[in-house]
Nucleic acid binder design. Structure first.
Lengths: 214, 214
DNA sequence: GTCTATACGAGGATAGAC
DNA sequence: GTCTATCCTCGTATAGAC
């Protein structure tokens, strides 16, 4: 099944041997597994089972479990990281910069809801040893600067920039962590459906912007 | 070392055999291990090593790894759960109720900073299968009711109670998750030191109360 | 590049002495 | 109640055929 999709995606109907496609399939499955279980508790067997390819392919392409994990971390973070950098937030007023930052952050994690739990596991289990770039920290710094400017200019309350940066991140990201536990709401709404994700973004932004203003 | 402390705590200097003390020591060590690694990735050997007692004691008192895990979940949640229930929040105005709720929540998790990560591992890894009471869900319900009252009475904004309840929890709890990754701030401040915890509580409460008000 | 079969080590759990 | 020694399953990783 996965093999079929793999071949079709690249326009090949005959040859099942396709290095790039196989790697992509493994990475996708690994992302899911690592997001739920973290590095140690993740099982390479489970990852292989999801892909449909043999377990040994993981070792062929990524050397070992750790290599695969690092690849997943790299790939997951790069999108968020680059997006935030490209925003050029210094050129906007603190209020606008904050809103732009939040929109970008929430858009990224809405497109890849696994990212927060991956970050979470890496932070708690491994204390960041596998991911030096430690994007959560760098991103936090970006946020701290925005808050500091806003306070200096008098548009934000007298809040602690460092503490508030963490709390703001929590407001945005916690939603995606609870997902596993709540999944089924009374009305059969899924927490990760498009409407709910958009609603979450709206609510989080409103809560934060209202919360920091004077 | 741990054995010494155990004996002294109960006032016995001779007999090292003390069922209650041994159980308590194991529970404490298990709480730490499960908080960092979750159920699957936690190692019983590591727990035993921290306590100083033999690994087989875990199985003697708690049957197996799962039994120990459930005991830890039970014990960790009960404090928070009971505290929230005792608040009798219906008797207060929405604003006061919300503040009381937040103070109690933040006090509980500040006293036991491991609780949030234990909850999150259980939610993400095991999707709540080991903890039916699912306190995070019940507590969320309490919060939803407060928000609904506040909106109806016109003291809170027109926010979505369900979404906002999750986001508010995130504002309070995310701090404790990042702990593992950040631990050392520039000035050598520890995230879990008393002053920092109090500051976090203040900042979180301020952000939320300001954020929900009209 | 991909598969099957297997070696090997780590960690959960038990037996039995004290 | 506590310890040491041991069993055995499970999961990582490799070997080798196709």
């Amino acid at each position: 099944m996965a093999r079929q999709a793999k071949a079709e995606k690249v326009g090949k109907t005959k040859s099942v041997r396709d290095a790039e496609a196989t790697q992509a399939v493994i990475l996708a499955a690994a992302e899911e597994e690592f997001a739920q279980h973290g590095f140690i508790a993740a099982r390479t067997e489970a990852i292989a089972a999801k892909t449909g390819v043999a377990k040994s392919m993981i070792y062929y392409y990524f050397k070992d479990k750790e290599g695969l994990y690092k690849s997943v971390l790299e790939r997951s973070h790069s999108d968020l990281w680059q997006t935030i950098q490209q925003l050029d937030l210094d050129h906007f007023s603190p209020e606008v910069a904050l809103e732009k930052f939040l929109i970008a952050l929430l858009d990224c994690v809405s497109r890849n809801p696994k990212l927060p739990t991956i970050m979470f596991h890496e932070a708690v289990q491994n204390q960041g040893k596998y991911y030096k770039h430690s994007s959560s920290l760098s991103i936090d710094t970006t946020l701290v600067k925005i808050l500091e400017r806003g306070i200096a200019e008098g548009v934000f309350r007298q809040l602690d920039p460092f503490q508030s940066a963490i709390n703001i991140m929590g407001t945005c990201l916690f939603y995606f962590i609870g997902t596993g536990n709540i999944q089924q709401l009374p009305q059969g709404k899924r927490l990760l459906s498009k409407v709910m994700l958009e609603q979450h973004a709206q609510e989080a932004i409103a809560l934060i912007l209202t919360g920091v203003r004077k």
